[in-house]
Amino acid sequence: MDTAPRTTGELTYRDATPADAEALVALIESAYRGDSSRTGWTTEADILAGQRTDRQGVLEVIESPLSRLLITERDGGIVACCQLEHRDEAAYFGMFAVRPGMQGAGLGRRVIEEAERLAQQSWGVREMHMTVITAREELIAWYERRGYRRTGKLFPFPYGDERFGLPQRDDLRFELLVKPLQGR
């Protein structure tokens, strides 16, 4: 598996190390929770309070032999991240965050394209999978414009597990989205 940093234009992509954990938690939290997340369009602040992740959760992804946490940097600062996990013929895409003030300018699209390229190159996978909270219709539509399709396969939200946030409503669930990667 190639783990060397890769630079395209003004962006550098590299694998996270344990030393990056605190900065990654801050990025992920800023993109999804609290008032800072409201400056971007990916906020979950109206449906979930509390934390999105913690240092331990980030370290688990970094240290797992089946996953990697991809960092995107611009001018030496972390501007985005995503998790890639090898799952047989597919890769799982998660923990995706873009700095709120940089959302809506094409950075997320570039990060997901790099993640798809890297997953296919590293593991030879045929599909990318992700789960998205079904209440996030605007986010699901964004993924659909990038070639992901809704599967109708639903998973319960982990109510009662505060590691994933404090639900503000009782109808939350996840849906599996899938994108074929053949021919890339």
Rank of each mutant, 00 (worst) to 15 (best):
G94S: 10
C82Y: 03
S30V: 02
A105C: 14
L139S: 04
I28R: 05
C82M: 10
Y148C: 08
G9L: 08
P180E: 14
T39C: 13
R87W: 02
M1G: 15
L70I: 09
P167Q: 04
F164Q: 01
A31C: 03
M130D: 10
G147M: 07
G147T: 10
L118R: 14
M102K: 07
V125Q: 11
E137H: 03
E144R: 13
I133D: 00
T8G: 14
R169D: 06
L176K: 05
Y148I: 05
G147N: 09
R145D: 06
F174L: 10
E10I: 15
H129F: 12
L84T: 11
H129E: 12
A45C: 08
V125N: 13
Y159I: 07
L166W: 00
T12G: 15
A90R: 10
R52A: 03
E63V: 09
I78A: 12
E138H: 04
R149F: 00
G94Y: 02
A141I: 06
K153V: 07
I78L: 10
G108F: 06
E63D: 12
Y143R: 08
A115M: 09
D161L: 00
E162G: 05
R136I: 12
P156G: 02
D20C: 15
E29C: 03
R99G: 11
R117K: 15
G76T: 07
H86N: 15
G104D: 09
T43M: 08
R150E: 06
G124Y: 01
E144L: 10
I71L: 10
R68M: 05
W142N: 11
D15M: 12
T7M: 09
L48V: 00
S37V: 05
L69F: 01
